[in-house]
Computed example of a mutant assay.
Amino acid sequence: MNATVNIVCYKWKELANGEHPLMICICKDGKRKYKSLGVSIHPQFWDFKKNKPKRNCPNKDQIETLITEKIKEYSKQIIEFKAESKDFTVATLVEKVNVSIHRLTVKQLLDNEFERLRKEGRLKYASTYKELKTSLLDFNKHLDIYFSEIDVNWLKNYEVWLRGKGLGDNSIGVRFRTLRALYNKAVSENIVKAEYYPFRIYKVSKLHKETIKRSITKSDVELIINYNTGHEYTQLAIDLFYFSYLSGGINFVDIAYLTRDNIIDNRLIYTRKKTKKLIKLPIQDKALSIIEKYKSSNSYFFPILSAFHKTDVQKANRVNKVLAIINRNLKMIGEELNLPIDLTTYVARHTYATVLKRSGVNTSIISESLGHSSEKVTQIYLDSFENSQIDEAMKNLL
């Protein structure tokens, strides 16, 4: 049986002011359900035969617009059910159309997400939301807007504005990927209806440009670890680079937080700060030697963090400060060794992946790139394979 949707002036209920509520009446399979429109009308202004307001009805145009829009919503949902060959009841139809929308502005959700990430200790990711907010405020002047106002034209204007500021594709891409993630959050939490989602048409992927591959060869790694220096931070830079290379390309931030609790049964076990993925890898003898070299009363393996750094902000600031020093020293080493790319801690991470691939290791265990596009996939595979397979694969590093 087809569903029918009509508007009725519900004369069985009279309000204190003598008006009757206007109701949507949905009928299907012998079942009937009424849903209030949220407005009421005096019976003298309602045409009960034609089920519409009379010509002399106050606010006639607004009431007719409301009726038209509401009937359109129900009719559209009925068509979607039929197109998907889904059966439905009166109750499910009403429920689907009347999903509650939480009216949060872009600013409110941005602030909520920033605070959530900050409390989770994901300060670097939180900073992308802070940067996005600053950028959007500069562009739009205020963010007391609803997500439904961000349409394709709005996004195009924002892109043009960012280019006018001199930003390149990758920098613009970071802003848009963060904004898209925020919009996805808004859709999933019923802050905005999915039908308003602008990223089906506006493709963020067009803003991504492949960066130059940042990996070196095994022989280059040998040159780095054999580099002679009497400078404390230069030697630390070499050791951290080598440790990362030997330990699954572990990120510098994760290295900073390693303690003796992260080694269990000769395996390095830690949870990535960025993705919250649990990583389990064999700890190699050369990596253990590097740890022993910096062994002290400090609970951390390496002289990056200490008991002095108590708050998340203090720790993040310290890690960023040391990372800058380490990368500065690595760059100097790379220049002296005439390496083909600027040497950074990330090069160790990328080299770990490419050396394994060039050694014939299956790409399902380790991918060529550990960047944003494939990093999660790589971690999933590392978690899912047997320890023996990972152990055997990592023997190819040196």
Rank of each mutant, 00 (worst) to 15 (best):
N2L: 12
A3Q: 01
V5A: 12
C9H: 05
Y10P: 05
A16E: 12
G18R: 03
G18V: 04
H20P: 06
L22M: 12
I26D: 02
K28N: 04
D29M: 08
K33S: 14
Y34C: 12
Y34H: 15
Y34W: 07
K35D: 15
S36W: 00
Q44E: 13
Q44L: 08
W46F: 07
D47G: 01
D47T: 04
K49M: 10
N59H: 03
I67M: 15
Y74A: 08
S75M: 07
S75G: 05
Q77Y: 01
I78L: 08
E84C: 07
F88M: 14
A91G: 12
V94W: 05
K96T: 14
K96R: 11
I101C: 08
N112K: 08
E113N: 13
E115W: 01
R118Y: 09
E120N: 05
R122C: 04
R122L: 12
A126E: 06
Y129K: 02
K130G: 13
K133Q: 12
S135Q: 04
D138P: 00
K141E: 08
H142L: 01
F147N: 03
L155D: 03
K156A: 02
L162E: 03
L167V: 03
D169P: 12
I172E: 11
V174E: 14
F176L: 14
F176E: 14
N184V: 01
N184G: 11
I191V: 06
K193Y: 05
A194L: 07
R200V: 05
I201L: 09
K206F: 00
S219H: 12
L223H: 01
Y227I: 02
Y227N: 02
T229P: 10
L236P: 11
I238R: 02
F243K: 03
G249C: 05
F252N: 09
N262Y: 09
I263Q: 11
N266G: 07
L268M: 14
Y270G: 15
K276L: 13
K277V: 10
L281G: 01
I283G: 05
D285I: 10
L288M: 14
S289T: 03
S289D: 14
I290E: 11
Y294T: 02
S297D: 13
N298S: 14
I304Y: 03
I304P: 03
L305V: 09
H309F: 08
T311F: 02
V313A: 12
R318N: 09
N320H: 10
K321L: 15
I326T: 06
R328D: 12
M332N: 13
L339H: 06
D342P: 11
T354Y: 04
K357I: 14
G360I: 10
G360A: 11
I365Y: 06
I366A: 11
E368Q: 09
L370S: 09
N387R: 07
N387I: 09
Q389V: 15
E392F: 14
E392S: 04
